[in-house]
């Protein structure tokens, strides 16, 4: 480790430092500090602006039962939509990444890779329109079937939505939206698996799939988790697509994915309510934003913990 503190000139043994090194060290340190400042600034803004919502009389807060009662269903809806998206997207994304890196012929793999990346370039409002105009109507017969045949499972209790503007549709749309980021990151780590490890498995008499299970997936594990967490972050914060697709009713907490009454999500609720809010209403919305901020932070800490727990076995050492 080299120290980057500037020498005072009082000691003659000060190590020689080049101007270029000092400039570079200073710039990168500045960038690092800037990130912390920005994050602290955002957190500070959220806390200051949200505070009145917590101190105000409960009846003044939108909904009339206090800020916690207002935010809790939103937090639940946000988490439900994001987890649903993650459950749909992760296996699919890992499958796509495995196909591209391990099975597809090189030329097909490249084209397919670009195509998946292209999904990430589509603006979220387009996904919203696609969800509401194309996907939702086509899912309604499926929801009716689910409610009829699998209605005993609370997830599909129904009554089935006739518009298709359900939590399940939102999960699907969000899943498609986060698919490219999860798959792109998985693809990158799968490509980095040293051929030494893959050959070790093959030379032991592993089939292609066994080789993937022995060498590729364990090596790419932290990358898959990292990609999934980035995707989860996007799903948690997605605003427009959810606002367009979801038929939300305030204050509901339900695991029923296919009914017309759904909990809203924090981001889409802010987008829909903000223009009509004043005074304590705005503070309440900011408080919900603070809750989303904390949730995202918690998810990231958790992901980091999962990745670190087995870092000795990660292959990085």
């Amino acid at each position: 480790m080299t120290s980057t503190t500037p020498s005072t000139g009082s000691t003659s043994r000060a190590p020689v430092r080049r101007l270029g090194d000092r400039l570079f060290a200073g710039t990168s340190r500045g960038a690092g500090i800037l990130i912390v400042l920005i994050l602290a600034g955002v957190a500070g803004f959220l806390i200051v602006q949200a505070a009145p919502a917590f101190t105000a009389p409960r009846a003044d807060v939108p909904g009339g039962h206090g800020v916690v009662a207002y935010i809790a269903p939103l937090l639940f809806g946000t988490a439900l939509a994001a987890v649903l998206a993650l459950l749909i997207a992760t296996p699919l994304a890992v499958g796509v990444a495995l196909f591209i890196t391990q099975f597809a012929p090189r030329r097909l793999a490249q084209g397919l890779g670009y195509l998946v990346d292209l999904l990430a370039a589509i603006p979220s409002i387009v996904y919203g329109f696609w969800g509401i105009a194309w996907l939702a109507p086509r899912l309604t017969p499926f929801y009716a079937w689910l409610a009829d045949h699998l209605g005993f499972i609370p997830l599909f209790a129904g009554p089935a939505s006739v518009t298709g503007k359900t939590m399940f549709t939102v999960g699907l749309v969000l899943g498609v939206m986060i698919l490219p980021i999860v798959s792109a990151i998985s693809r990158e780590v799968f490509l980095q698996v040293p051929s030494l490890h893959r050959e070790a498995a093959l030379a032991l008499g592993a089939t292609r799939w066994e080789m993937i299970r022995m060498a590729v997936l364990p090596y790419g594990r932290s990358g898959i988790i990292g990609g999934a967490m980035l995707g989860l972050g996007r799903a948690l914060g997605e605003t427009l697509a959810v606002a367009i697709v979801l038929s939300a009713s305030g204050g509901i907490v339900t695991f029923n994915l296919i009914s017309p009454d759904n909990p809203s999500t924090i981001a889409s609720n802010i987008a829909l309510q903000f223009p009509e809010s004043t005074g304590i209403g705005v503070n309440t919305l900011v408080a919900s934003g603070l809750a989303l901020f904390v949730l995202t932070l918690a998810v990231n800490v958790l992901a980091r913990a999962i990745v670190n727990r087995r870092s000795q076995f990660s292959g990085a050492n």
Partner: peptide, 12 residues
Amino acid sequence: GMVFQRPNPFPT
């Protein structure tokens, strides 16, 4: 069976 030039135990 095969042993390679560079040791390649499964790191995971």
